[in-house]
Design a protein around this nucleic acid. Structure first.
Length: 278
DNA sequence: CAATAGCCCTGGTGGC
DNA sequence: TGCCACCAGGGCTATT
């Protein structure tokens, strides 16, 4: 599941391969993944253009084109975006292939086909409501402890749901949300309004820390995630709680528990992360 | 407005 | 061994 660290690693990989290359052709095997415009118009907006930048906002990947248009990808659960040479192109789940002028391929592959692809003209960000309503990112200047405190105090949502809501903070997904709460030693079912100033400070540090660690480890590969060059991440070796239900808490040794919060599987230590809080 | 339930989608898994 | 219900979960939409 690509979250902000994984998308950032993909972005860096793509940047190395794609800058200044021209997209000379596009093969679309599953048109419904292209959410705007429809496939033919999409192709005409993109074919013949050079890629001038590889950017990211939250979990959205943005390839800027030399005509001012932007190619937007959201990988959702199982989307993969990678640069390969034609002889290595063998992904059974390839859905869109962008042919580059040096013969290399940019392949969008997706097992569960939940990903979304768009081509936008300048100023058309509004077409993607999720992209248009992203909160500040962890590790960014806009993401301050003051900001976090302000929005937490206004929220009645359970913290797990709060952290997953991209309009408050962009980039956290199920893995890093659980990890941030574990590191901060805060129960996922508590609410923002109920946190002490000290807990907010811990949560703020923890969010930045788990995201930074995820990036430093090249992302978390459980099953599907691959970086822009097809390699795996290593952060799965450094997780505190995610996927560790039944295993010993790294801090106190108690078994990690898995529950459902807001419809999402949620992992936490019942000893370190108390409902009452401290 | 805000929280939540349902939905999309396919492959892996666990139970029988 | 084979079958099948169920789960994984990001984010949008409908509902309460």
């Amino acid at each position: 599941m690509p979250e902000m660290p994984e998308v950032e690693i993909i972005r860096r990989g793509l940047k190395r391969h794609l800058l200044e290359k021209q997209i000379v052709n596009i093969e679309v095997f599953l048109p419904r993944l292209i959410k705007w415009p429809e496939a033919d118009a999409f192709k005409s907006m993109v074919i013949g253009r050079r890629i001038t930048a590889a950017n990211r906002r939250g979990k959205y990947l943005l390839l800027e084109l030399d005509n001012g248009n932007t190619l937007v990808f959201h990988l959702r659960m199982t989307g993969r975006l990678l640069c390969v040479s034609p002889k290595d192109e063998q992904d059974a789940y390839r859905k869109i292939i962008f042919h580059l002028d040096d013969g290399e391929l940019l392949v969008y592959a997706d097992t569960r086909t939940l990903g979304t692809v768009y081509a936008l003209k300048p100023g058309e960000t509004w077409r993607i409501s999720g992209l248009n309503n992203l909160g500040p990112e962890p590790l960014s200047e806009a993401f301050t402890e003051i900001y976090l405190e302000k929005i937490l105090k206004k929220s009645s949502a359970k913290l797990k749901s709060f952290l997953l809501n991209q309009k408050y903070i962009s980039g956290l997904g199920n893995i890093y949300a659980d990890e941030a709460l574990a590191l901060a030693k805060i129960h996922p079912q508590r609410t923002g309004a109920g946190l002490t100033k000290l807990e907010i400070a811990r949560l703020y540090q923890a969010i930045n820390e788990v995201i930074a660690a995820g990036i430093a480890d090249g992302g978390t590969t459980f099953r599907d995630y691959r970086n822009g060059e097809g390699g795996r991440g290593h952060h799965q070796e450094h997780l505190y709680v995610y996927g560790r239900n039944g295993k010993a808490c790294l801090s106190c040794g108690a078994p990690i528990v898995k529950i459902e919060v807001g419809g999402r599987g949620t992992h936490f230590c019942p000893v370190c992360q108390l409902l009452e809080g401290k």
